[in-house]
Amino acid sequence: MSFIISLKDIERFYDVGGEVVRALDGLDLNISANEYISIMGPSGSGKSTLMNMIGCLDTPTNGTYEFENEYVHEMDEGQLASIRNRKIGFVFQTFNLLPKSSALRNVEVPLIYANISKKERIDRAKESLIDVGLEDRMHHKPNELSGGQRQRVAIARALVNKPSIILADEPTGNLDSKSGVEILNIFNQLHDKGNTIILVTHEEEVAKNAKRMILILDGKVKSDIKN
């Protein structure tokens, strides 16, 4: 079985005031297509570093990271930007929408960087917003939307460029429980449609939605359980 993501012996060290911090310390992880994974771990466990690593925002100090036959650990900044754009859909805890742009514009932005023509961009952005049930909120700005709606815009933005994985960092952390359930339902639907989802969370309730639960501790995979 071939993997979408294959992390081998990943190490990531930081130099904090002359002291070396081993955020990731020999981590191995393989992820296949259409998996729904949760990554858990207490703060300081290396969970955030791992998420940045998988999201191609960071590169390992040592080890190999293969993403659909591309060697991420050898990439320069431009290549990393490109792979983020093509293969990864981010969903953040604080939504991270452009506050002064409409929902439609927010969803359109990744396609600008993917160099897609204006007409196609708008068509695809609309389609993506319809998929998350926001067809009547397209021209609203983030401050005119509820938390749950904002997160749905963010999911639409993550999906618009048809990424290989969706990487969600505490996606329900800033939402009330009802909106949180809605968002998790959307993730379930996306998974049913064949998407690969990686959910980073510290809430066990949220993590239980995933089909595979990974616990990180001291920069290593502590446990890897399939539901």
């Binding site: 983020r84 754009n85 452009l98």
Partner: peptide
């Protein structure tokens, strides 16, 4: 800065 971070995360490179 935040906006720049978001743009970079969703695929903007340095030149952009």
């Amino acid at each position: 800065i935040k906006e720049i971070g978001i743009r970079k995360a969703i695929g903007a490179n340095r030149i952009d």
